[in-house]
Design a protein around this nucleic acid. Structure first.
Lengths: 200, 200
DNA sequence: AGGAATGATTAGACCGGTCGTCTAGAGCGT
DNA sequence: ACGCTCTAGACGACCGGTCTAATCATTCCT
């Protein structure tokens, strides 16, 4: 009982195999068989853990954002940095992860957002909850940056946080399309300009 | 010979049915049969006009951007407007089109970008050419706006054009996810701020 | 302690739909 | 009448998600 039960292991094995493969090939383009084979789990087990592919997708997105937001919180909790530095660290991580694998990054919001939002209501809501969490954390960092004087900007904090996220989301799509990291560099320059930051 | 040949009609019927359906359901999620039924074209004809689903996708994206860029050029060519007004007109159109159909807009760059870029090299290149055309037209509008004094901004024109596009691309994804037009309103405010525009 | 019962997990069959192909034949211009 | 473009839709091989039946581990009762 000390560690996770085998049932949980199987379940999360399916989940993480799904994240890896669907992050690469999308949702509709991937069959359960491929995920289950990769996870080393027999096909019949699937419907013991998930009611349908759709329900699986929902759980996968939720699990993805749980980890993702925990990572953000870790950056936010880091001591000895200004808010501006933490924000730059976050975007540097974003760029790093998304440029990996030959510019075919694995962020599920980027990869699945447009595809799945019109397809499945549960997945859409999971995506909405997750991205909402990201934006509200960005907003908190912006507020902290005003408080500690490390950055400044015009307009509502909520607008700026959302726009920053949208900018990086769009840049991530363009990185895939152009297969070049240049969109991220431009996004970085724009981010700095929007936040009146000196070259951090 | 005055009008398009019937062959061209059939071909473009398949193309436009494909745009409508794949704009809604994505690429992998749609079968040829569905498109051909909608177009009223029998299945056998398909492979006379296109070598494969992949080649069809490439042609579809190319055709989409041809129309799209023609629409942009029409806005650019319109007389009696400042560059800033033309730019606002463009983004207003974007918002309009994307909010239609209950926030499940039909822009193929938004819908297919992330899904297809990692899947098919020909489609990726078609997407790259199309989005490149959009950004370079935005850039031209920005230069015109500087020239006629209707807007001003800091940074390289190319960066600003690309960032504007990324911002709206990301906002379009978020509109799908949130099923609310609010991301566009925020993007509009940010756009105006970036370009030092008064409430046009 | 032995064995039956219970619930978790697996195995693989199942039907329907996928893309892509292929053989005919219809329609048209020459 | 001939040749060529285009249409027609059946077909095959395969893969999709789903479900029912059997197996396994565990627990509880006698």
């Amino acid at each position: 009982m000390a560690t996770a039960s085998p049932a949980q292991d199987t379940r999360s094995a399916i989940l993480s195999a799904g994240q890896a493969i669907m992050g690469r090939k999308g949702y509709s383009g991937v069959g359960l068989t491929e995920i289950l084979t990769a996870a080393g789990v027999p096909k019949g087990s699937f419907y013991h853990y998930f009611a349908s592919k759709d329900a699986f997708g929902e759980a996968m997105v939720a699990a993805y954002f749980e980890d993702y937001l925990a990572g953000m919180d870790a950056i936010i909790a880091r001591s000895g940095l200004t808010a501006a530095e933490r924000l730059m660290l976050y975007f540097a991580d974003w760029r790093e992860n998304q440029v990996a694998y030959d510019c075919q990054g694995r962020c599920l919001a980027v990869k699945l957002g447009a595809e799945v939002a019109d397809l499945s209501e549960p997945m859409r809501l999971a995506l909405k909850a997750g991205t909402g969490g990201v934006v509200s954390r960005l907003e908190a960092m912006l507020r902290a940056g005003i408080a500690d004087g490390s950055l400044r900007f015009e307009g509502h904090t909520g607008d700026v946080a959302a726009s920053l996220y949208n900018l990086w989301l769009g840049a991530s799509v363009m990185v895939k399309i152009e297969r070049s990291h240049e969109p991220f560099e431009a996004a970085l320059r724009t981010t700095r300009r929007m936040l009146a930051m000196s070259r951090a």
